[in-house]
């Protein structure tokens, strides 16, 4: 059900952009206003979300322990999977953010010959990594259209991405990998009954949206080509605050732009915030030093305690009178 809702939503967005630009000629709306609003929502929404998370209380250390904790010097500890200091945390976070360390530990349980077998399952990790890195490279590559003078490193990334020089313009490896990986992520939600059961519209929508963005981009580059110089001019117009969306650039460009705008505007309200959230996960970014440092909850109420020593001081005479033993005579 959720899948169909999400699919119809993305299809509707594409139709909306097509009709809006092609039939109604609303180039300024789709080529300037909506992108500006979407970008504003993205940056402010993202920052606000992270700020809200930042204000949550983190009084205690709650890291997930994925290795031997540091204790006695003769017990070998795992410095990165169960870090006890800041340096270990930095390494752990780097492994998590850059290499998806915790997903690498993904396991799968199956019944073979009547026995329950637990095994490693790296496919999600592999395609997840492929998806995110392809997306990152595609994102960086796009800056050739956002900066008037294209920096050399972007050209290097681009030439590596088109390394095989197949077709004209060169086919980017990341284009293929992004579509392949997103298709995998989608297929797994449809084909695995357990995953399908827990998948909702909010899981399918970003996948369809990103697939839509990728496919519209691929169409624009290889099949329904647009005048790239004109496209860059529209984009430079946006970043220099002199928007001049041109009707000469094909409608596929505006569909692509509208889908990207939707992604940006949707981002802060969605699961995609794991981009910011991964850095603020207390189960990853805290050092496991609970046995070395005493963490006191700062909002503990000031409880008045009556210790045994005080009690005895108060009642010593009476206790002696009835023959109850006391610690201090």
């Amino acid at each position: 059900m959720g899948m169909y809702v999400a699919f119809l939503a993305v299809a509707g967005l594409i139709v909306l952009a097509f009709l809006g630009v092609q039939a109604a000629g609303l180039h300024f709306l789709f080529g300037a206003l909506i992108p500006y609003i979407a970008f504003f929502l993205f940056v402010i929404g993202f920052a606000y979300r992270v700020f809200l998370w930042g204000t949550s209380a983190v009084p205690f250390r709650i890291p997930t322990t994925a290795g031997q904790m540091q204790s006695f010097p003769w017990v070998k500890s795992n410095k990165f999977d169960n870090p006890s200091n800041g340096f270990g945390v930095v390494i752990r976070m780097a492994l998590e953010v850059l290499l998806f360390r915790s997903l690498f530990r993904n396991t799968k349980s199956e019944i073979h010959d009547g026995r329950l077998i637990h095994g490693s399952d790296k496919w999600l990790w592999l395609f997840g990594l492929m998806f995110h890195y392809s997306f990152l490279i595609i994102f960086i590559r796009h800056f050739r259209l956002f900066l008037e003078n294209v920096p050399g490193f972007i050209l290097i990334i681009e030439s590596l991405d088109g390394f095989f020089q197949a077709g004209v313009p060169f086919v980017y490896l990341t284009d293929l990998m992004l579509v392949a990986a997103a298709t995998f992520l989608f297929a797994r939600r449809v084909l695995l009954p357990q995953i399908r059961y827990i998948s909702m519209a909010a899981d399918y929508f970003p996948l369809f949206l990103i697939l839509g963005i990728a496919i519209s981009g691929i169409l624009m580059r290889y099949f329904i080509r647009v005048d790239i110089t004109g496209a860059k001019q529209v984009i430079i117009g946006l970043v220099s605050f002199q928007p001049a969306p041109s009707a000469e650039v094909g409608v596929i460009f505006y569909i692509h732009l509208f889908l990207v705008s939707t992604l940006l505007a949707y981002f802060p309200f969605s699961k995609l915030m794991h981009f910011g959230g991964v850095f603020l996960s207390p189960t990853r970014n805290l050092a496991n030093n609970s046995r070395m440092v005493r963490h006191v909850n700062p909002w503990n109420p000031d409880v008045h305690v009556h210790t045994y020593a005080e009690y005895e001081d108060e009642f010593r005479d009476k206790m002696k009178k009835v023959g109850i033993p006391v610690e201090k005579e």
Partner: peptide, 25 residues
């Protein structure tokens, strides 16, 4: 966290900062 957010906003604003004042030649 604030430092991270400043870096994020700075990166997001970078194309606009580079684009500022430049004509759309």
């Amino acid at each position: 966290i604030i430092l991270g957010l400043i870096v994020f906003i700075g990166l997001m604003a970078a194309p606009f900062i580079f684009g500022l004042g430049k004509g759309n030649a």
